[in-house]
Amino acid sequence: MDIFKIVFVCGVIFTFCVEVILGTITCENLNMDSCAFAVSSSGKRCVLEKNVKRSGEEAFVCTTSQIDTDHVTNWIESDSCLEACGLDRNVLGISSDSLLDSQFMQKLCSAQCYNGCPNIVDLYFNLGVGEGVYLPSLCQTRGDNKRRGMSEIRSSGYVAPGPTVPAKLMVDGSPAMAPSTTGLY
Rank of each mutant, 00 (worst) to 15 (best):
R45V: 01
T64Y: 13
C35L: 10
D68I: 12
E58W: 10
C46M: 06
C62W: 00
V47G: 01
R54I: 02
H71I: 03
V61F: 01
F37Y: 13
F60M: 00
D70Y: 14
G56E: 06
V47H: 13
S65F: 15
E58H: 13
G43D: 08
E57K: 07
D68C: 06
I67T: 07
N51A: 06
C62E: 01
G43F: 14
T63G: 04
I67N: 00
D68K: 07
L48K: 05
H71W: 13
F60T: 01
A59H: 14
R45A: 04
S34G: 12
A38C: 12
V72T: 08
K53G: 14
V61L: 06
S55E: 10
I67P: 00
I67D: 06
H71Q: 05
A36H: 10
V47T: 07
A36G: 06
S34M: 02
V47W: 03
K50E: 14
E58D: 08
G56Q: 10
G43R: 00
L48P: 07
V39N: 03
D70I: 09
V47S: 10
R45T: 03
Q66F: 11
D33E: 10
R45L: 03
A36Y: 00
S55R: 09
S41R: 01
Q66A: 02
T63W: 02
H71T: 13
A36P: 03
C62A: 05
R54F: 15
Q66D: 11
R54T: 11
S34W: 12
F60A: 00
F60P: 00
A38E: 10
F37Q: 00
I67M: 09
M32G: 05
C35N: 14
S34D: 09
S65H: 14
K50S: 05
V47Q: 08
S34E: 09
S40A: 13
A59W: 15
V39W: 00
C46H: 09
A38I: 03
E57R: 06
A38Q: 12
M32V: 14
A36C: 11
M32R: 12
